[in-house]
Design a protein around this nucleic acid. Structure first.
Lengths: 341, 341
DNA sequence: CTGAAAGCGCTAACAT
DNA sequence: ATGTTAGCGCTTTCAG
């Protein structure tokens, strides 16, 4: 391995000069010397050693990413893989690498905080985790810059998708289409779900839609089977809903199977709405009516924010960044207003 | 930050003893002393510093992962996110962290090799990259342990999905179902595609299926539009195929749209086959006939292999590990044998 | 069984 | 404009 020392030797200069020339802090050095050093370094195939640099500077240019594959919503979920991909791009563009943070390293058990420290990460993006785990709050409340995604901690920065607004827009649209009996299958009771429920209730109130508790059901996110069952129950009601809102596009697919099996047509016999706006939702016919979350923007924003905190720890204040999505109207909601004939 | 030195001070022992006690190499030290040191370390909240350790030992317990989001086949693709997720699990289980390797870090341009060296990665898994890029071959041919996925380099280890076998199994099945006019829309000409084409041709020969070059078309992987167009062309033929094989399940979806728009029914009017076996393929009705790639096993195997090379550089020989998938019969291929009525 | 000391590769005062 | 020097935190001979 070629080191700074080897270059100094070859150039007949001190390691200090070489270090300065190579690490940008060359204001001190004769520009010609700098050029010379750089050329020799290149010729010798010099590659700096991040570990040595970190040890000295306490700055690793490395961001930890917490992404625990829990239940069905891991990296495999398009929403999350979109976020991850954007985090990667956002960090790399600013000169930071990313490392996954887990709570064990082999057989040894490290907490998230310990792992982050161990690897000297400058900051952490908590993308997908069990936020109620005390380990997470410990990490977030530590002195390590953190940004959480889709979950807010007191006095800390986070990037969140506009879940409440999303539900609002869905209800608004469905209501405009003339629907009155709207069912809502929501995911397990996470904070995201709570926001969606709030959006749902508020919008129903606003648009004068009667809330029927027997039309509000729970099914785990990304478990199409759950939504299929809920759909059956809804269809079995004496006065079934005219529109069903699903926790996500995959779940909608689960409901769809049941609907089709009963010989019902979407949207003629029943309207359906998804959430997420994954690729699939645009490929299906009829195209899904769904709320498209802007995963890319969420990831980019999280990367940007955490680096902002790292680089301006004093001036950077905690902030909740809400990323807007948009309604994809698609064709799975029937317009009941026209059924006057 | 608590260091080994602080602990030594508190214990009134040397840093050497503390280091030994804490890093397992404690065979030297009095067991009671070891216990004592450990308890003090814990009490003080000691966290080792990976950078310092790496600097000294040249062993980072960190695996670089090359995952460039090219075209439509990035992390977002379920096949790749499945692999990534498994790599993560496989590495973490063995005590290694993973870091993404890119070719730039901020504005500075680093080659993959330089980046890997810079971060002191013990090895690299090349999961998704432009394999013809000389930077990749340089990395692979360097002294850094590497494992490539779905691409083979001379005298190096790799993990590959059984693409040739996959096509074989598809053709075998389709042929058994009585199909003679089989169209194949393949992806862009990568090495994976070449293997599939080989499997296709060989199986056709074996099962006495006439190969009609006008029924072999190209469409980019994961670009449903491409497959939609190819499907149109195929359906427009005077004597169209009875079965169309698509490059992947998403592309199949693209073809499906066209088929449905023409009022044709799957599988009654035309049979279709996908590839990958993503979640979606099991949720659709009719369920897709497709070849399921074992992404999980591929990722796990890659992790295992690269760590094997790292830990036994002498004894570990290059190896091509082929991971078997399996045919998901589904219901999108019609049995023509029964159409005797 | 324990400790002293050297040094991994680099940066950053502080000289010169 | 260049060099000297002191470490960052840790592991690892080698001595005691």
């Amino acid at each position: 391995m070629v080191t700074i020392k080897d270059i100094a030797l070859k150039c007949d200069l001190s390691i200090a000069s070489v270090s300065k020339a190579l690490s940008g802090k060359a204001s001190d050095i004769n520009p010609k010397t700098v050029e010379y050093i750089k050329s020799v370094a290149k010729e010798m195939g010099y590659i700096p050693n991040a570990s040595a640099r970190v040890l000295k500077t306490n700055h690793s240019y490395s961001i930890g990413v917490l992404f625990e594959d829990q239940t069905q919503s891991g990296i495999q979920h398009e929403y999350f893989s979109g976020i991850l991909s954007a985090i990667k791009d956002g960090c790399e563009a600013r000169g930071y690498d990313i490392t996954f943070i887990s709570h064990h390293i082999g057989s040894r058990n490290l907490t998230y905080y310990e792992h982050t420290r161990f690897r000297n990460c400058d900051g952490v993006i908590i993308a997908n985790a069990e936020f109620t785990n005390p380990e997470i709050s410990y990490l977030v409340e530590s002195d390590i810059p953190t940004v959480t995604i889709d979950y807010v901690f007191e006095n800390r920065s986070s990037v969140v998708s506009d879940n409440s607004q999303g539900m609002h827009d869905i209800i608004e649209y469905v209501s405009q289409m003339g629907h009155k009996r709207i069912a809502f299958i929501h995911g397990e009771l996470t904070s995201v779900t709570q926001k969606r429920l709030r959006g749902f209730y508020q919008a129903c109130q606003k648009y004068k839609i009667e809330i029927r508790e027997d039309m509000i059901k729970e099914g785990r996110y990304h478990v199409p089977k759950d939504s299929a069952i809920a759909t059956q129950e809804l269809l079995d009601m004496s006065n079934p809903p005219t529109c069903i809102i699903y926790p996500d596009d995959y779940s909608l697919l689960g409901g769809m199977t049941v609907i089709n099996k009963r010989g019902l047509k979407i949207p003629d016999d029943i309207s359906v709405v998804g959430y997420d706006g994954i690729l699939l939702s645009r490929l299906m016919r009829p195209e899904f009516t769904t709320y498209v979350q802007d995963a890319k923007n969420i990831g980019i924003s999280a990367a940007k924010k955490v680096i902002e905190i790292i680089e301006n720890p004093k001036t950077c204040k905690p902030e909740i960044i809400t990323i807007k999505g948009h309604l994809q109207k698609g064709s799975t909601v029937k317009d009941l207003n026209q059924v006057e004939d």
